[in-house]
Amino acid sequence: MDKFTVHTGTAVPLRRGNVDTDQIIPAVYLKRVTRTGFEDGLFHAWRINEPGFVLNQPQYDGASILVAGPDFGTGSSREHAVWALVDYGFRAVVSPRFADIFRGNSLKAGLLTVELAEKIVQRLWDDIETDPTTQVTVDLVERQVRWSGEVHDFELDDYTRWRLLEGFDDIGLTLRHTDAVTEYESTRNPWLPSVPA
C-alpha cells in the first residue's frame, strides 16, 4: 500500500447526502475479477444521465479530493467503490459522516476518509464552487484539512494513522501474532462447525 502523509490538490463539491455504494459503482462493474481500471464505473449513472453532474464539469478536471454530504458510502460492502474512487484519481474523501464498512475499506486501501462537521463541509463546498482552483491540503501528519486560510482538525485513531503513514499492510502486521492465533485455536469449543473441502 502507498504511504499517505500530506496531500494537496483541487476538490470536487458533491452536494449530496446518503451516497450509497450502488451509486458510487453499479453492480454490473462488480463482475470483474481484476483489481484495477474501475474508474469508468465511478458514479456511472449520474455521469451518463446528468450533464450538469459535478464530474462532468470541466472546471473540476484533475481534482483529487471529493467533498460529499453526510452518510457517504452506505449500503453494500463492495470495496470496488473505493477502488473506483482511487482509480479515478481521488486520494481523499471529505464528508460529515461515512458508513462504517466503506470507511474501513477506504482506510485499508489508502484512500483517506476525513470527517468534518457539516457546516465546515458547507463552507468548503462554497469555496471550491467560487474558485475551483482552490488548493486543499489534507495533512495526515497534523490531522488537519487546510484551504484558503481555513484550518480544521479531524480525528483519526493513532493506529490507523500510523499504518497509513508507514503504508503497512494489515496482513503483515497480523502475522506477527501467529503464536497467539495458534494458542487461541487450541482453546476453541469442540462443537464449532467445520467444512473441510
Binding site: S77, R78, E79, H80, V82, I101, G104, N105, K108, A109, D170, I171, T174
Partner: peptide, 9 residues
C-alpha cells in the same frame, strides 16, 4: 460484512 481487503486478511 467486510470488504475485499478484509476477505483477504
Amino acid at each position: 460484512g467486510i470488504g475485499t481487503s478484509q476477505v483477504e486478511h
